[in-house]
Amino acid sequence: MISVTITRSGGVAGLSRSWHLLLEHEEWRRLCSRTPMDEEPPRDRDRYTYRIRARDEVLVIPESRWDDGWRGLLERARPGEPGEEAVDDPPEDPTAAPLP
């Protein structure tokens, strides 16, 4: 199993939220293979951005590409879902990394 963290940031409110879940290695590799390739920068403003981290790998997915497959992953990571380790973290404190 591999520990995965999903962080949603952005939105007009600029609030970040994180969720965790455990995945089989094979499923994680499958998710990595369907990550959208780099495209023209979206013209969307104030939409969410999802970052999915596992070990030293990070997938960055704009909300406009957040399809049913990714939604399913997030549903599994939400608190209260059976069979998953689900923790609803408080927002990160971005002031923890100020410029020197």
């Binding site: 952005g10 007009v12 951005t49 970052r51 990394a97």
Partner: peptide, 13 residues
């Protein structure tokens, strides 16, 4: 107090 972050498109909000 400028915030360096990878989230939120580099902290735009």
């Amino acid at each position: 107090q400028y915030v360096q972050t990878d989230e939120d498109d580099g902290g735009v909000h």
